[in-house]
Amino acid sequence: METIKRIVVAEDQQLLRGALTALLQLEDDMCVVGETDNGIEGLEMITALTPDICVLDIEMPRMSGLEVAEQIRKNKLPTKIIIVTTFMKQGYVKKAMDTNVDGYLLKDEPIDVLVQAIRQVAKGSKYVSQDMTASLFAREENPLTSREQDVLRNVKLGYSTTDIAKQLYLSKGTVRNYLSSSMQKLGTTSRHQACLVAEEKGWMD
């Protein structure tokens, strides 16, 4: 008989979390030892219970799945990580791959795919949803300079041109130039659109 795989599920949608837990418990070689609706509790459970595998929603209250994954790696916990998401944003994919997660699945996959992924990951392999494979090989080169990224990060925080100039010790004219070049490179007509595009593509890290 196969070794029982101990699993923690962190998913903020109660209905989905309950369904995942119930279905995984039906598998002879799986046991859900903890479940929660937020990242902070998820990390606490993973630290205390050291499950074989954790299934993390990418967007959760208090701490995202990717932030939990980063802490697992930082603290050198032995738990393998599977991220589940409804989003196929390149920025998310890039961060997940940079964090070296073990699996990355879309939520609309059948439960059989998650079960297969858990078994595959438990054996030391990686698992990525087939629909997401193209995103892994379509990672575009970041066209923004480090200064343009700094300016857009401040736009994200809601700062005005004057505020950004003070924050970065630049003239207002220089800030406007950086914003203009960023918008041109990203094909947008506003600083806020440029910020959204850069964030989605993972170009403000």
Rank of each mutant, 00 (worst) to 15 (best):
D98L: 05
P51Y: 12
L136I: 15
D150T: 09
E141K: 12
Q130F: 13
A117F: 03
K123E: 14
Q120W: 03
K126V: 03
D29Q: 13
G187P: 06
Q193A: 15
V128P: 06
N142L: 01
Q120G: 06
P78G: 11
V68L: 04
I4N: 06
G18L: 12
I83P: 07
R6M: 08
S64K: 00
L157M: 13
W203Y: 10
T99Y: 11
M1V: 06
T188Q: 13
K201N: 07
Q167F: 08
E199I: 03
P61N: 12
G91N: 08
W203C: 03
L77W: 03
T161W: 01
G187L: 04
L15S: 13
E200R: 11
D205R: 09
P51C: 11
A19P: 00
T161F: 03
C54M: 03
G202H: 02
C54T: 14
I58V: 11
K156H: 06
S182V: 00
G34Q: 06
L77Y: 08
R176G: 00
R62H: 12
K89L: 13
V93N: 05
T47Y: 06
P110D: 12
G34A: 09
V101I: 15
D102C: 01
Y178S: 01
E148C: 08
G39V: 07
Q90V: 15
E148F: 02
R6H: 12
K107Q: 09
R119S: 04
Q14M: 02
N142D: 10
G39C: 04
L77E: 02
E35S: 14
R176S: 10
T50D: 09
G91I: 12
R176C: 04
P78S: 14
I58C: 12
T85M: 04
A194P: 05
L43K: 02
T85N: 05
C195H: 05
T145G: 09
L168S: 01
K74Q: 08
A96F: 05
R176Y: 10
D108N: 15
E11T: 09
G187W: 05
R73H: 05
I46Q: 11
M63G: 08
Q90H: 15
P61H: 10
V197N: 03
Q149N: 08
K107R: 13
V128C: 10
D150Y: 08
V115D: 13
V9F: 05
L114D: 10
E141D: 08
S181W: 00
P78I: 10
Q25K: 11
Q116F: 11
R176M: 10
S125Q: 13
E59W: 07
N177C: 03
V155R: 11
Q71I: 07
A48W: 02
I58P: 01
